[in-house]
Simulated scan of single mutants.
Amino acid sequence: MLHRNISNGFRSLLIGLSAIGAAGCSVAQEDSFTLVTELPPGFEVKGEAIYTPRTGETCTVPPKSGKSHPGSKIFKQGPSEKAQTAHFTIPLSSTGDGCPLVLKRFDYEVDAKYGAARLNLGRDYTSIAFEDAKANSQPSPSPLSLKRECEWLFRTIGSNRYITKILKCKAIETPQPEKDSATSSISRTQLAGKTLTVEFSLSKEERPYMGDTWIKFPEGWKRCMGENLDDQYGFCRGNTKDFKSFKMPDGRECTVYPNCTE
């Protein structure tokens, strides 16, 4: 009889622990979301989740102590020669020194290579803002998704006129409203337990970084002469006949971009 009672008690304990574990998972899921980031080949990202005191709280975010910083959590995805997808579990709240914190912003640092050299690197930044649920707010569409299109802006630098590129990423139309070209705003409540996908794409077209410095022809872009070969700005100023050569990142001498030769 004692053995049977012990067995029954142990079985009840296991059931109770399972229920607590399931509830714990449910609470964890409700207090976080999955951030899926789709990247083109050659791209890498570093993300920072930034937390602020919950609305109505008078406490402050505690300062960083060693590697611990309740107000900031870092997420990384390294580069790959192929397109890749990163999955991050982002907490919607945090606590520091008894101060209740909520997710305020997720900042992306986007890096991409355009050449083999170490400095042949472009970088840009984009953010997602999070806010309290508004009264009578409509549920977010499912699945939740945001899109960022990146493009290369090219220019020449130095007396040898080497091509260098600047990476620029902007938001493009999605079911979620965009406040501006770099930031989206989403309700934390509507995001709890869900998946948000941020898709980065790379435009096939490149364009000059500075206006009135290149002229586009059927065979490609030609670099305007400006006042002379040493003119660093080299504005066209209506001169559509005089151009100067430049060098690709790999050292090739070229007269038209991106095909190099006409």
Rank of each mutant, 00 (worst) to 15 (best):
180 D>P: 02
157 I>T: 09
217 F>T: 10
122 G>E: 08
21 G>T: 10
8 N>G: 09
147 K>Q: 13
72 S>K: 15
184 S>H: 10
76 K>L: 03
74 I>M: 08
119 L>G: 06
26 S>E: 11
143 P>Q: 05
50 I>M: 04
170 K>S: 05
201 S>E: 03
253 E>A: 09
160 N>F: 02
84 Q>N: 06
197 T>P: 00
70 P>N: 03
101 L>K: 15
145 S>N: 09
47 G>F: 11
95 T>A: 14
115 G>I: 08
143 P>T: 11
190 Q>R: 03
121 L>F: 02
145 S>I: 14
160 N>C: 00
122 G>L: 05
110 V>W: 03
76 K>R: 09
6 I>Q: 11
39 L>C: 00
2 L>F: 15
148 R>E: 04
180 D>A: 05
236 C>M: 10
162 Y>S: 03
250 D>F: 07
63 P>D: 06
246 F>N: 03
73 K>F: 11
178 E>T: 04
100 P>K: 08
182 A>H: 09
44 E>R: 15
156 T>F: 06
106 F>Y: 15
36 V>R: 12
99 C>Y: 14
228 N>G: 10
86 A>I: 00
198 V>N: 14
43 F>C: 00
153 L>Q: 07
43 F>E: 01
151 E>H: 04
175 P>K: 13
102 V>R: 15
95 T>Q: 14
57 E>T: 02
156 T>Y: 05
192 A>F: 01
127 S>M: 02
191 L>C: 05
240 T>N: 14
12 S>I: 11
116 A>I: 01
126 T>C: 05
4 R>Q: 04
51 Y>F: 15
239 N>C: 04
84 Q>D: 11
155 R>S: 12
35 L>F: 11
207 R>V: 05
69 H>C: 04
62 P>M: 10
114 Y>R: 01
96 G>Y: 13
119 L>Y: 15
36 V>M: 10
35 L>Q: 06
83 A>S: 06
131 E>H: 12
100 P>A: 11
171 A>D: 06
255 T>W: 08
193 G>A: 04
29 Q>T: 06
224 C>R: 03
15 I>V: 09
256 V>Q: 10
139 P>M: 05
245 S>E: 08
93 S>P: 01
99 C>F: 13
237 R>H: 06
236 C>T: 08
85 T>S: 00
237 R>D: 09
158 G>Y: 04
39 L>S: 01
199 E>Q: 15
261 T>N: 12
5 N>H: 13
224 C>M: 01
